[in-house]
Design a protein around this nucleic acid. Sequence first.
DNA 1: GCAAAAGTGTTATCCCTACACCCATGA
DNA 2: TCATGGGTGTAGGGATAACACTTTTGC
Lengths: 221, 221
Amino acid sequence: MYQYEYPHPAVTTDVVIFTIRDRQLKLLLIKRGGEPYKGQWALPGGFVQLDEDLEAGARRELEEETGVAGVYLEQLYTFGAVNRDPRERVITVAYYALIPSDKIVLQAATDAEAVGWFGMDELPELAFDHQKIVDMAHERLVAKLDYSTLAFQFMPAEFTLSELQAVYEIILRQDMDKRNFRKWILALEQIEETGNERCDGPHRPAKLYRALHRNKVEIIK
Amino acid sequence: MYQYEYPHPAVTTDVVIFTIRDRQLKLLLIKRGGEPYKGQWALPGGFVQLDEDLEAGARRELEEETGVAGVYLEQLYTFGAVNRDPRERVITVAYYALIPSDKIVLQAATDAEAVGWFGMDELPELAFDHQKIVDMAHERLVAKLDYSTLAFQFMPAEFTLSELQAVYEIILRQDMDKRNFRKWILALEQIEETGNERCDGPHRPAKLYRALHRNKVEIIK
DNA sequence: GCAAAAGTGTTATCCCTACACCCATGA
DNA sequence: TCATGGGTGTAGGGATAACACTTTTGC
């Protein structure tokens, strides 16, 4: 038992984990094993340890569910409506994470819960206020494509310009002109040719590129 | 005494309260009356009540210190480093608020603490990690001027274009061309003439304008 | 040789920037 | 009448958007 002179809320971190697969923006959900909302899908998350920074907690959840470390993680917003959890006052600090498509492992569920990737268009009903959190994360993602190199975080170490363009098209839900896209993305001076090529099928091989600053999201004008 | 099965952190809200006075961007600080950091300047803030939404808590702090209600308030970021408070684990949800210049009241200090407005260039040393919070709030403010109508929140109900331009110049710390500014701000279609004029001194009277959507910050492109 | 994706330039349009003088008023 | 801030237009340059054909490969 832990005692305090004044009442304290519980604090959790929840993580919206995005990736791109099958030409769709997908996110990872877990099926709740206990009450409340038992059996419903929800964002991965858990209580903040008192000896653990907020981001460290979010990263721990992320790694437990996906098995990947070192990916992009950013604080989104803190949700603290009085009745968002029926048990007690729970304030959640929400994060979102981007996973490169080649790092997805079909993870054995950690806590005997089911785990699944869902397309943004086929989300099930979510527990708590998690739909609101997902909506805000999606908005942020779309907005940040415009003025940062965030999209690179979905890419593997080497990628083609067509693959990169596809990421933009999938997230923004609109086709782009190939020539203008290439001119624009190269003018940013944020990627360089690796010198390698990739042969995919019955067509000309594509040059491979890498991000100049793999672990940093740059603000672009 | 309040008892929990698991340890809970304390949660506070802190508010960075901006206004513009004397051609300077200023913010409100209070002098701490108790330990820790007794006698040092800090952001207004306090513990979250369990029956009060986060924003409501921030707004309560804001109103207690400034006496103004209904002003712009936005969540900034949540700071939760393990040792940011020497007493116990304290997570703070930081907000920032913008006060129109005509609403500032020289407030009698609520809790026998001193209260003061400080220019961004003459801030004293701040308690806790409050300097970091102020820096982030300032960055957000500068960034949002570019792509939203946030600056209108500093304006009284009626204002001249020169006054509005001054707000941009003060926050962005750069002079702007008068004709280009007027063309740009009018093209946004976010303000309209009130029909009134103001005579200030020995010169032509200035037309007064009002924001079309006083209580909403629009995203502009 | 054919299907399929990779790669590549030019032109028109719009937006942003730079820039200087007259106007209305109070003293 | 003079000092002070209010108010107004145009032209050039840079960025954006539209648009079609050739190249390389696997089968």
